[in-house]
Structure formats: structure tokens, C-alpha cells
Design a protein around this nucleic acid. Structure first.
Ligand code: FES
Ligand code: FES
Lengths: 152, 152
DNA sequence: ACCTTTCCTATCGATTCGATAGTAATTAAA
DNA sequence: TTTAATTACTATCGAATCGATAGGAAAGGT
């Protein structure tokens, strides 16, 4: 009992970032079918179709309905950070309520722990906003090259 | 539906760190009753008594049973970091399985997202290990002073 | 003996999580 | 104008997790 699996990123976020990175690899082209993304990333299309709603309503992607519809990034890959994606999927990155909303906790003026949750949240935000979809795309290309080389 | 409350620290961790910081304020004295900690921190004693088990079995605190029993820090406050506490309560800080266990994911060699989860996990670890219980205790003292001043 | 405290295990109800199902709306093409 | 393909939406499902409570067993001081 206790400590079954702590501090894990949700699959929603993992899938979401993978989907966005997949879209970044096809930036500039016709809209991409969710079906194809799901197949490439080996993820349930139905589940992705839920995740995609948050991404669209956050303004990160545009969608087209009907035949030849699909999804496209709303901005250039360099202009979308992993932080943008995670905020769209999980809400504001705030580890404890009383950091962003001091009234929610009566101990704010005496509690010594609140400060570090604030600091940690900020560090996480900094790290996440330092990585763009363009970075992910270039990482993918590099990995692909390495795989080819190691297969020779 | 979706995004009810994302990226929040568990109450287990919040309570645990508060309890340890309370213990740090009484380092060097007789063991402290859980009852008193629970009262000071305004937390269910029963619930704390579960949390405390993980802290003890991680070797962060010592316990004495029976009358005049209680809990004490196992090391000096300067030698216990918030990372120690969180690892005791939540397990290893690893955002996704395939970072610490590459076999768990078949896409490791091609997946562009894995790297940043590793980086982020490391950053979180660094931040958490940079704060000790001694720091928390001094923060508490500072806040207490400020409160006195602002009440004059 | 008696009281106090920690220790342990077993729950409870509510919420969240990952996932699936079914259907409506929209669009391109035949 | 029909048909096929695709996104949009809502409603679940079962399992896991979460915060919390309950009740007694073990240990130790008086
Ligand atoms: S947890 Fe809210 S102020 Fe300490
Ligand atoms: S999620 Fe495991 S390798 Fe990408």
C-alpha cells in the first residue's frame, strides 16, 4: 500500500507531445490525418482524438473537417514549446494551489515549504519552455541518422 | 471532462515535507509526538502516521515507541534534502518509465521526446536536492520575524 | 497492571486515468 | 446529390489512485 507509482507524467501529456512532434515533422504540408499519426506513433486513435481537442482549443493546432481534412500546427515549430503543449493538456504548471492562489491556504505567512514549490514550478517551466518542436524534430532526424549508421 | 487538476504535488508529499520541517525545528531535543506535529501542522494524525512509515523506512527519521516515544530526525537538518523526502514518499523521480528503464519502451531508439523527460527529471532532482531541512528551518524563522514586525 | 505512544493492515468513498463507443457535423469528391 | 471520409462531441467503462478513517497489535515507561 502506498507509493505504487509516483511522479509520473500522464500518458495524456506523453501522447500529446509525441503527436505535436509528429505534426512538426510534416509542417508546411497538407493537413495530417489523425489516423496516420495514431498509426505512426502506435497509439489509440480514439484516445488521441480526445487529446487533440485540448491542443486545438489552446490554439496550438488548426483542424479541417471532412474528407482531406486533418490537423496542422498553428505556428511554426520554432514557436511552439513543450511548455505550451503541457499547459494545454494539464493546465497551469503549479505544483500546489497556494503558490498561484495564496488565499487557498491559511498558513501562507508562516509556511516554510511554499517557497520551494514555487521555485520548483518555475524551474520546470523554464526547462519546458526551452525546448521547441523544432528541437524535437531535429532530435528525431539525428536519431534516424544514427540508426541508419548503426545498421550498416 | 479532462484537465480537472493537472501537475499537482500529492498531499502525501506536501504533508511529509511539512512534517520533516517541523521535526527540523526540534532537532536535538527529545522525540516529538506525532500528535503534536499533527496539531501544529493542522493535519490528520492518522494520515500522518501512514506517511511517517515511508520516512522511517527510508532512514530519514528514527522512532521510539511507548510512553515518551516519538520521532526524531535521523541526520542533521543540513544533511537531509527535500529530494530525500520526496524520493522516500513518491519513489524515484523519473517522469516516464523508459528513461530509467529503456527496455520498457520499444521506441527508445527513434523517439525524440524521451530525452527531454530525462532532462526535466534531472533538473527537478537538482532543484530538490539543493534545498535542505536547515534551509526550510531558516525560512520559517525569517517568516516568523517578519510576522512579528508586521504586527507592531 | 496501566497508560501512552508507535506500528500495521484493512478498508471507505470519491476522484482520476486510460480507453472505448456511438453519433453528429462537415467537407471533398463521384 | 449521394457517398465516403474525416473531425467534433458526449457519454460512458473498469481499474487504479487518492485522501482519509478505523481498529487493534506491539512496545515501552511509570
Ligand atoms: S502548503 Fe500552502 S502555505 Fe504551506
Ligand atoms: S516514450 Fe518511451 S521512448 Fe518515447
Amino acid at each position: 500500500m502506498f507509493k505504487e507509482q509516483g511522479m509520473k507524467l500522464s500518458t495524456r501529456s506523453r501522447y500529446g507531445v509525441r503527436m505535436m512532434s509528429d505534426l512538426a515533422d510534416h509542417y508546411d504540408l497538407v493537413p495530417i490525418f489523425l489516423k496516420d499519426i495514431a498509426k505512426r506513433e502506435d497509439v489509440s486513435e480514439k484516445y488521441l482524438s480526445l487529446i487533440v481537442i485540448s491542443l486545438r482549443s489552446a490554439g496550438l493546432i488548426n483542424s479541417t473537417r471532412g474528407a482531406h481534412g486533418g490537423y496542422k500546427l498553428a505556428r511554426r515549430p520554432e514557436e511552439i514549446t513543450v511548455k505550451d503543449i503541457l499547459e494545454a493538456l494539464e493546465g497551469d504548471i503549479c505544483l500546489v494551489d497556494c503558490v498561484s492562489n495564496p488565499e487557498s491556504c491559511s498558513r501562507v505567512s508562516i509556511c516554510p515549504t511554499r517557497d520551494i514549490w514555487g521555485i520548483l514550478g518555475r524551474k520546470i517551466g523554464e526547462t519546458l519552455s526551452s525546448v521547441t518542436l523544432a528541437d524535437l524534430a531535429s532530435t528525431r532526424r539525428k536519431k534516424a541518422e544514427n540508426n541508419i549508421r548503426s545498421n550498416i
